[in-house]
């Protein structure tokens, strides 16, 4: 982890309430896909943790959904704004764990961290299938960006207004995969956990205090002991997960 001032170079809506922000500066501390950054916003006491969608040279892309007052404020930030950001937080996805064929499953704003992961896996010569789930057609984003990487991309919407009707778990019946990676709302993670037979990694979300392991606000129980979502997570191995009752 380190603390940097990053400059906003782009902040545009992808859907009615999902935004893409590009931040420029020394982002060398971001090492693996699935890590997150924690952004200080004027007028808000706690930082906002947002997963990294992509890193190219000295820029980071993040994609965030407006869900409350902090993200509402983020959406108003203009190009040139400077943000105090803690970067390189958390344990990301194990890019080398996938075997030859990786299945990536993302739901809603759980999709973004899979983008950098897909990029790394494809660069490493892996075959990548990406299944994206959204509620409805208007909420779909990044389908073409994943296609441009060379991934086999499939989309599901809950209401059937775009792609396959249903959930990400309806999209990979005929896919051979050696390993899976997933990020999305917890019911989706649980469905993926129960459906996928291979080993895999799941990225979790929790309300955080600090985002770097000091306050113990985002603890969870795992097979291998108590873990902090922000420090040992957000990515957990399938084999270590204990679902809350």
């Amino acid at each position: 982890m380190n603390q940097k001032i990053l400059k906003v170079t782009e902040n545009i809506p992808l859907t009615s309430n999902v935004y893409k922000m590009v931040l420029q500066g020394d982002v060398s501390e971001v090492k693996t896909p699935g890590q997150f950054i924690n952004i200080k916003l004027d007028g808000f006491y706690l930082r906002r943790p947002i997963s990294v969608c992509d890193k190219v040279d000295d820029t980071l892309t993040i994609i965030y959904k407006v869900v409350g007052e902090g993200t509402e404020y983020m959406a108003t930030l203009k190009e040139g704004a400077e943000l105090d950001v803690l970067i390189g937080l958390g344990n990301g996805f194990g890019v080398n764990a996938s075997g030859d064929t990786a299945l990536l499953l993302g739901g809603g704003v759980g999709v973004p961290p899979l983008y950098m992961l897909a990029k790394k896996l494809i660069e490493a010569g892996k075959k990548v299938t990406v299944c994206l789930g959204f509620n409805t057609k208007n909420e779909v984003f990044y389908e073409n960006e994943f296609k441009a990487l060379g991934a086999d991309v499939r989309v599901a919407t809950v209401d059937g207004s775009y792609g396959t009707k249903g959930f990400v778990t309806n999209l990979f019946e005929n896919v051979d995969y050696s390993y899976y990676y997933t990020c999305g709302p917890e019911p989706m993670l649980k469905a993926v956990f129960n459906t996928c037979k291979s080993s895999g990694e799941l990225s979790f979300e929790e309300r955080m205090g600090c985002g770097f392991g000091a306050c113990m606000c985002c603890s969870c129980k795992t097979v291998t002991g108590y873990k902090r979502i922000c420090k040992e997570g957000p990515v957990m191995k399938k084999e270590e997960i204990i679902w809350n009752a």
Binding site: M216, C217, S219
Partner: peptide
């Protein structure tokens, strides 16, 4: 001690509420 169930943190104006529970 594992401490209390999550969520354990809430933001306030110029502050934070925590309920970690001595983990």
């Amino acid at each position: 001690r594992f401490g209390n169930p999550t969520p354990r943190a809430a933001e306030c104006t110029a502050g934070i509420i925590n309920s970690v529970g001595l983990q």
